[in-house]
Amino acid sequence: MSTWERFLDTFFNAKVMARYLPDILSGVVVTIELAVLIVISGLAAGLALALLRSLGVRPLNWLIVFVVDLFRSLPPLVIIVLMYFGLPAAGLSPSGFVSTWLSLAFVLMAFSEEIFWAGITSIPKGQWEASRSTGLSYGQTLMNVVLPQALRLTIPPLTNRTIAITKGTALGTVVAVTEILGQASSAVSNSYNPSPLMMGAAAYIVLFFPVVVAGRWIETKFAWKR
């Protein structure tokens, strides 16, 4: 066997790949489910916190900033492990799936709150004043004038952050979530061959590449003519 054949046999072993393809595909489904849940709940919570913060209630803002900074500084893996192994002590026993979802949603909430907040504060004061001077209320100004502009600005950093955090679903393996990486690594230990890991890598690319492209597309679509 030549070196090249040995390489192929080790990393792209057709027999092993065919055997574990269904497992990897079921992992893809779990990853998609997790990713969708994390993105929706994380971004919604982040936006809600940013809007709350814009009301300017001091004690509330201290609390928001504290929570946000906490989740931004903790490694996601630590949060997942704490939730999965720590919450049972408090009488709650979230599954690995729920632990991973909530942990990463909190992290995305924290980062996206900061991004939404930066977007809102970057809108010039004159926009608020023009709107308020025509009689729009604070809320109407926020919804019709400030947010539409702020959201456009936040799309690029938000896309990056969302992709980075959604890839963190792989961390779910440590709490026995059967997502792509979990399926791939158990297939590797069962088959004594790393080919399933290559399939897992391919699955991540197939999954996230379109998201990256879509992010770029949204960016150009929502840019307004200056």
Binding site: Q127, E129, S133, Q149
Partner: peptide, 14 residues
């Protein structure tokens, strides 16, 4: 009832 015009126009760019 009180219209206001600003130095920097402050039109909504979107």
């Amino acid at each position: 009832r009180i219209g206001m015009v600003f130095q920097s126009f402050n039109l909504y760019p979107h």
